[in-house]
Amino acid sequence: MIEEPPKLQIRKTIRRPGADQIAAFRDIPTGFLCDAMEGQGALCSTIQPVGGGRDLPTHAYGPAVVAENGPAEILATMGAVHVSQPGDIIVSAVHGHKNCSAAGDRFCGIMKNRGVAAFVTDGQMRDYPGIVAAGLPAWCAGLSPNSPYSNGPGKVGFGAVVGGRYIETGDMIVADVDGVVVIPFSQIDAVIAQLAAIQELETALDAKVQNGLSEMAAIEAMLADGTAKLVD
């Protein structure tokens, strides 16, 4: 590299979905969203509610503000907090680095004070009792008391690979006890358009199960038309 990159780059214009688009994801389970995207959309299952979800809310939704940190880095997260707005979800990418925290209780407290809806990282966190006291919902890959650095380089407001999926600033994030799902900005309206039908189908199936459904009709049909068969 001929020249060192800037320590921190912050995108001037942070795109966000509209208020009505954001509100459409309130109380929507992550499974419904994956169903609306051909069964996909979730980040790696190692990213779970901090502490297993036992002490903090386990549902959050909002537009992503992506902080692309390097391993053991936090400078970009600091920049993301600086430009965050109420309702945003700050996504800290640390390239999946382990054995170092990507945020702790004070960061969570500051984010909570700014009105940030949640924090998501492919790294680990620390200061669990303080995180609980701050009250900010968070998803991470576990806990580590080791401290990060703030040397950079880092980028804010662009995109990064987190948990095996590329997340662009402005994408919708919905997280619950099952995990974290990203809805690409370009697909937000299409996903919203499917939610009512998905909820109707789920509700109908729930009612059938509660009323005693115990057969797999699709398997019976396959056996009947020969696409499946019974063998000894």
Rank of each mutant, 00 (worst) to 15 (best):
A60W: 10
I28E: 00
N151E: 15
K155I: 05
L75S: 05
L230P: 07
K112M: 14
T169E: 02
V83K: 05
V177F: 08
V65I: 15
G52P: 08
V209I: 14
M172H: 02
S147D: 13
A141P: 09
S214T: 01
A134I: 05
A141N: 07
E38I: 08
R114W: 04
A221V: 05
Q194L: 04
D178A: 04
G52I: 00
E4N: 15
D20Y: 03
A160S: 02
C34S: 02
I192M: 05
I110G: 00
G142D: 06
M216H: 05
A133G: 14
D206R: 10
D27T: 11
A190W: 12
A24K: 01
Q85F: 06
A160Q: 00
W139F: 09
V94F: 06
D178W: 14
Q187G: 07
L56F: 06
F158Y: 05
G87C: 01
V132W: 03
S92C: 03
E215P: 07
S150M: 14
L213N: 00
E4A: 15
G154K: 15
I131C: 06
K208F: 12
A60Q: 13
I173V: 12
G79I: 07
P49Q: 02
P71Y: 05
E73S: 13
G53D: 13
N113C: 13
I219T: 15
I74R: 00
R54G: 05
A197Q: 11
Y149W: 14
G142Q: 06
T227L: 15
V162G: 03
S147L: 14
